[in-house]
């Protein structure tokens, strides 16, 4: 029994190690592809960037705003009702900035993007591979890593940055409006506490998170999208893409917060 557990753990560990080596090789191959950027004509990827930005950013606006409104409202109601009990209502702005702007905004946005666009990227690429579209591109002398991955990284980074800003703004303003139905707080006081609480560090951290998410989400999803060798494997790898990107996003969020606010 013990031996079996050890063997299974070892096998799992070896599998994870091999997967990491494979992913490292994938990332290396993308770096190699970046060398051919000078041969790439921007017009060939312009449409992809526009379409991906529209899908990842613009089309996700409605759902991001609704979730921001609900989450923002909940956090603000909790803060306004709980802080006075501890006699720290003066820290309302700080609490909101800490919860919404530093953590909830970037993470919730990343989760929405993974659920919508990450799964779509992995599926699209897997289907393109299965229908030999990617092979056709390769045989036209098109650097597929550059043509497929690069525009998605650019589009995701732009979209996530925009969505995080919108999420935070909607969460604060919308949340305030919702909260006003429960607790009274003057708008100017609320606004001033937020402005006072925001630091330059918060803006840089949000920027770095959006860039990190913008790179990791399409990168991992493209990696898994290129994996299936048959139709049967497509849903397996799409599921892996979503779950592992979620996991990595939470790690990235935690790592950036640790570096900025703990170290």
């Amino acid at each position: 029994m013990f031996e079996k557990t050890i063997t299974l753990t070892g096998r799992k560990g070896l599998g994870i190690y091999k997967g990491m080596i494979d992913f490292r090789d994938f990332v290396k191959s993308i770096f190699t592809s970046f060398k051919s950027l000078r041969y790439l004509r921007f017009r060939s990827i312009y449409t992809i960037i526009i379409n991906q930005t529209r899908f990842t950013g613009v089309d996700a606006l409605a759902i991001v705003m609704i979730i921001a409104l609900l989450l923002g409202g909940t956090v603000i109601i909790q803060a306004l009702t709980s802080l006075p009990k501890f006699g720290v209502e003066g820290f309302l702005g700080n609490i909101l900035v800490i919860i919404i702007a530093r953590e909830l905004g970037p993470l919730a946005t990343a989760l929405i993007v993974i659920a919508r666009s990450g799964s779509a990227i992995a599926t699209e690429i897997a289907v393109q591979k299965w229908s030999r579209e990617i092979l056709s591109m390769e045989l036209m002398g098109i650097d597929t890593k550059l043509y497929i991955v690069f525009p998605r990284i650019v589009a995701s980074t732009l979209s996530i940055l925009g969505l995080i800003i919108i999420f935070d703004v909607v969460a604060f303003i919308g949340g305030y409006i919702i909260a006003r139905t429960v607790v009274y707080i003057p708008m100017d006081v609320f606004g001033q506490t937020l402005i006072d609480a925001f630091t330059f560090k918060d803006i840089i951290a949000a920027l770095i998170k959006s860039v990190m998410f913008g790179i990791t989400i399409p990168l991992i999803c493209c990696y898994y999208g290129l994996k299936p060798n048959s139709k049967f494997e497509i849903p397996i790898y799409v599921s892996k893409a979503v779950i592992r990107t979620l996991f990595i996003a939470i790690i990235v969020n935690g790592a950036v917060s640790t570096i900025f606010y703990l170290v």
Binding site: S131, E138, L139
Partner: peptide
């Protein structure tokens, strides 16, 4: 090499039985 191979592939026209047109 890597880039020379890309250029070679660019120079040869190729069609296979699945055609591989970009569906989007």
């Amino acid at each position: 090499g890597y880039f020379e191979l890309m250029n070679y592939k660019k120079e040869v026209g190729y069609i296979h039985g699945d055609y591989g047109l970009m569906s989007n």
